[in-house]
Amino acid sequence: MTSQDSFGADPLNAPVAGSVGAGAGLAGSFGASGRGPRLLSGGGRRAVAVSTASTLVVLAALVAIFWVAPGSAAVRHTFFSPADMWQSFIGNPKKGYYSVGAAIWLNIRMFLVAEVLILALALVIALVRQSTSPVMFPFRVLAMVYVDFFRGVPLLLVVFAIGLGVPALRLTFVSSQSAAVYGVSALVLSYSAYVSEVYRAGLNSVHRSQLAAARSLGLSHGTALRYVILPQALRNIVPPLLNDFISLQKDTALVAVLGAIEANEAAQIYSSTVFNFSSFTVAAILFLILTIPLARFTDRLIDRDRRRRLAGAVT
């Protein structure tokens, strides 16, 4: 195997090169966080070298395994054909398939709209569930049933139920929306059940004495929640919230079952038109480009939070 030539020419080169870059970045950050006191900066540089080398060895091994597999050539043609990847990325309406690259915009739009609605609806559900007033009792029960239901039913079924059921009702306005609208509705219903539990955990993580302290100053319950409890609760739940949103980004692909031309559906159409699955690889790469920055951002927040907590413990 003339690895040097084929490696350079192979479409695999693109994603692999990308991940080597990411690996080096990772190694760099390991070195930086391992350095701590300046005395060890020599050791830090050594650590960077070692981790870079180890990353390269592991990647080379993975690529080698892929290469020597008996079906390697067929898989490379079906999933990693450069021509097909490019064709599906830009799309060609005349030949009957859409651009996966353009279709991802629908995923991004669905994600952004769903995210805002989920954050708002989930907060309302969490606050209702946390309320103690007897007047709120029926709403507490309702909120509990809601969360139990939508956490228990697979998201795909919710998408089907909303996307096929609501139009079948033949109501004037709500039954004539696009597939994307029904998809977003299903995502919001399902995810706000999860996210409301994240909020609830955050609210519980703030010690009760904080509420007592705020109320003792003459602040109303609502004011105490808004200025004292919620800001602390939100700070504690940013990492798990972002985690849920990473998975929300991917789950926008489920709206494909309703026929919305988002990235996954566009890839599906390409593959059934041209009989090559490389379009799915393109969709996967596009989803990764969306989710990885959010994942790294989440890691940084967790790290910052940990450092702040340590600093707080020292003083």
Partner: peptide, 26 residues
């Protein structure tokens, strides 16, 4: 006014904001 054994200052606010919150909001 009541002051507790465990201070219960609001950790996400500066000293000044801790003190001005109730006068401003209440």
């Amino acid at each position: 006014g009541i002051v507790f054994q465990s201070f219960n200052l609001f950790p996400h606010m500066t000293v000044l904001r801790n003190v001005t919150l109730a006068p401003m909001k209440a």
